[in-house]
Design a protein around this nucleic acid. Structure first.
Lengths: 132, 132
DNA sequence: ATTGACCCTCCAGTAACTGGAAGCCTCATA
DNA sequence: TATGAGGCTTCCAGTTACTGGAGGGTCAAT
């Protein structure tokens, strides 16, 4: 199978597939003409990667998950550990963003948004107010 | 004032200040010895930048906000537009992360996390289940 | 004169791709 | 058989916002 077919079937862009080969996530063979030659298994792995990435796992997480995916003797606790760790990081990001949103929403609401220069947003960002 | 003082007063690391100069956010003069020479105003701008960055504004947003900060004839609607746009993007990110969290939390909960290989997380990521 | 704390520039690396240039390969059609 | 449209290849550069480090001047005090 050529890269285009694999891209269509897995949902992962050809460019990204080449990148994944570069960093050693997949190892397709080569045809005589130099084209990458993929198998069904590669399609599966790529789809797996696509899903894992969609859930926000890093490439390094994906590397780990992929090896667990292929390891018949894996222990589910290994997988769970990776997922829990990632979940924690997602929650941290959410918390940080929610805090930003709260501040920002408040400022936006307070700002008249008219033709005058007075602006609570600028004032909040300005350090002069500290000196006063 | 040398970069170290400015870094301490503004809370922005020296390395970052140099970077901000590189990209034209601030323009300190130079002393005879080649050292950057900062003024109080630079400290203010840098503190402003630090706060804006902490609220998640991009560097390009910061560039705009900084020019509005310095513009006595600004219209608050200009500031508000930038902030509202950023707020929208934050909300998008939050939504995306919450969706990931939901999926991930569900999977983590379903996973036994023991010594057996069976794992709902791996199964969810696997494409084979589609074929079944 | 030497030490230690500053300062300088320039290069490389981070995360995960994405776009584009330059150039083969292949197949179908004229 | 020539040609043109895709598809494939590699390699280079750019993205975001810094951060770390090497190699080397500067300054104040001892």
């Amino acid at each position: 199978m050529n890269i285009g077919d694999v891209a269509r079937q897995s949902g992962v862009p050809a460019k990204t597939i080449r990148y994944y080969e570069d960093i050693g996530l997949i190892r397709p063979n080569r045809s005589e003409n130099g084209y990458r030659a993929f198998t069904e298994n590669h399609v599966h792995k790529l789809a797996f990667l696509g899903r894992a990435r969609a859930l926000g796992f890093t490439i390094e997480d994906c590397r780990t998950l992929l090896s667990l995916y292929e390891d018949e003797n894996r222990e589910s606790m290994q997988v769970k550990a990776v997922a829990e760790d990632h979940l924690r990081q997602i929650e941290e990001k959410i918390a940080k963003l929610q805090s930003m949103r709260a501040t920002l929403a408040e400022l936006v609401e307070k700002c008249a948004g008219d033709h005058r220069p007075d602006c609570p947003i600028i004032e909040d960002l300005s350090p002069e107010r500290l000196a006063k």
